[in-house]
Design a protein around this nucleic acid. Structure first.
Lengths: 233, 233
DNA sequence: TTATTAATTGTCGTTTTGACATTTAATATA
DNA sequence: TATATTAAATGTCAAAACGACAATTAATAA
């Protein structure tokens, strides 16, 4: 085997597929790229991995720098390393997907940064292989969300069952039966019903719930099965 | 944002966690490292990613070079990129896990190469962060195998239900009820019963089965649920 | 008082599950 | 030839989960 020194060296970057939910739709966050090539084209939020940080840390840093967001749910998707994926120079990119509650950061995003939310179906064409990354991330999000309670990351602390259901419907691109859905959600034991109601959506109002954080932590790695008849995207 | 040219460049490697099944036990394939540092210590099969190959291709190449194995089931695990994970120079490593039928390659391995199979519980200590990689791969293997029919990659073309069950028991480190297991396996519709029997294990003999390849391809991405009461490792 | 609107909840037949032991097919042995 | 042995294959049953389905409830508006 060859020595280290004779081996080629490469750039390593991270790219974040940031999914958000605004109470109605599943969206992704895009930015206009700030450097050549493809400057001013729409792109995922990304950046190079620095000398003293891990890819995970780089993703957190890049996300904060571009959007002000901190402490976001981040999960490694996969590495993208086709030799020609970046036309300037060979660059490996570690894909991450992030989950956030859009309303929580709305002002912050609009005022200080020029990142923009897009409906996934109406997003502009992205640079390089970023469209493929989005597709992969979408698939993985759906997969994980069917088995793990990660979608709560995209909701406010207090949320209603109808809100939760809409989110699941968006992620899975399907309609879910109200009765069966709430039965399944209840059976997880993850939710705590609050006294307060959300009156914004109806006259009757919907009860707020919050996460049982202890059970949430315990179930992050556990298996649920929230979506019936799940087929591949 | 900074220009490409001012960014640090790194080495990028691949490391393969090769799982194998010999009819009795789940094992992993290790080699004695051939370069400094840590020369002659036990290690995963790995190598640097060349200029004109993707990480996937590099993994296939490295696997072939070190073991003679070709066309093996390979799946990306995750990237390992802690700044100090390699003491000589910063190196990113893309972890892959591979699945093979040990008996199919037995002679080839022993004669031509000095790779060695180890029971997972009895493996030697590995270099760098390779022990963590093995742990992660083991977890992911169990996770995937509970939902996708990938374990067939570790069996010969003709196999028996008892063999299959032993493999599932090894992967999940648990005993499975024979009756419930064969019912579940049957209900997947993935197996085709052959006339021939395997007489090596008993007087009565166990019928051979083969995969229904069409259904196998269709179900690779579909959801199964073969292991009851699955808990995190 | 009534109409309206969305939230909430219940039933029922079917399927799947998990826990359990017996029967069967072939060879070895008495 | 009959019997013992061994592992493979299979059946039952009660409980739980599932999916399809519509009626009731709580609050405000008219």
């Amino acid at each position: 085997m060859l020595e280290y020194s004779s081996q080629p060296h490469y750039l390593v970057a991270v790219d974040c597929i940031v999914f958000g939910f605004d109470g109605e739709h599943l969206k992704i966050l895009l930015v206009k790229r700030g450097l050549e090539p493809e400057i001013n084209k729409w792109s995922l939020i990304g950046g190079f991995v620095g000398s003293n940080e891990s890819p995970d840390e780089a993703a957190q840093r890049v996300l904060k720098k571009n959007t002000g967001l901190e402490g976001i749910y981040l999960e490694q998707l996969q590495i993208y390393g086709e030799p020609a994926r970046d036309p300037i120079e060979r660059t490996f990119s570690v894909g991450y997907f992030a989950l956030i509650d859009i309303n929580k950061y709305k002002t912050q995003l609009n005022d200080d940064y020029h990142a923009e939310w897009f409906l996934i179906s109406e997003r502009p064409k992205l640079i390089f292989d970023h469209d493929r990354m989005v597709g992969d991330a979408r698939e993985k999000l759906r997969y994980k969300a069917a088995l793990h309670p990660i979608l709560f990351e995209m909701l406010p602390k207090k949320f209603t069952i109808p809100q939760l259901q809409i989110l699941f419907e968006e992620v899975n691109d399907t309609k879910i039966d109200t009765r069966n859905f709430s039965r399944k959600i209840s059976s997880t034991g993850l939710l705590i019903k609050l006294e307060e109601k959300d009156k914004s959506g109806s006259k009757k109002g919907a009860y707020y719930f919050k996460l049982d954080k202890k059970k949430y932590q315990a179930n992050l790695q556990a298996f649920l099965n929230l979506i019936p008849n799940l087929k591949p995207l």
